[in-house]
């Protein structure tokens, strides 16, 4: 398991997290949404251990509960990913529309395997279940945005070109 060094919590990050907590009324019942919002602002799009402990303290919930939530939900991550995590749909609709081409092309173009990041930390490749873009299959999703009809090398290149 990826272990964090202490010191992730810079004063800037802490201020941003506090703002998210304030906006949700420091309400522990909003933990899922709070974690998603925090994950968005962390450059490598995950929840560092230190942040989980911080939330437990601020929201007065057990850190074991915070970790349970992080480890349960597939959209929450406890280890660093990348600046642009590319989520490739592995479900059936994209499956019958040759998502294998998307997997192979992206791995080849980026020179990384599944659940790996490029050396500069910019791209990260992962498989996810259906995100409801079946009408534009095969599709990927990057930081909330869907890119569909990726049935040619050109379209995949164009998608990557947008990620800057």
């Amino acid at each position: 398991m990826m272990r964090d060094e202490k010191g992730m919590m810079t004063p800037e990050l802490r201020a941003e997290i506090d703002a998210i907590l304030t906006a949700s009324g420091n309400d522990g019942s909003k933990l899922v949404g709070i974690l998603l919002d925090i994950q968005d602002i962390i450059p490598m799009h995950y929840i560092p251990e230190e942040v989980a402990y911080y939330l437990a303290e601020k929201l007065n919930v057990k850190v074991s509960n915070v970790y349970d939530v992080i480890s349960f939900y597939a959209s929450l991550y406890d280890r660093p990913r990348g600046q642009y995590p590319i989520q490739m749909c592995e479900s059936i609709v994209c499956g019958v529309n040759d998502n294998g081409f998307v997997f192979a092309t992206l791995q080849e173009m980026l020179g990384i395997g599944l659940n790996e990041a490029t050396a500069d930390g910019k791209y990260y490749l992962e498989c996810v279940p259906c995100f409801g873009a079946c009408d534009v299959a095969p599709a990927v999703r990057v930081n909330g945005k869907v890119y569909g009809h990726l049935n040619s090398r050109e379209k995949i290149e164009a998608m990557l070109a947008e990620l800057v």
Partner: peptide, 19 residues
């Protein structure tokens, strides 16, 4: 609550936060 449920499916474990 030093130990609780974590993860899901075949990764479901009863353990402490961050192991």
């Amino acid at each position: 609550e030093a130990i609780s449920y974590t993860g899901r499916s075949s990764h479901f474990k009863v353990m402490s936060a961050f192991g």
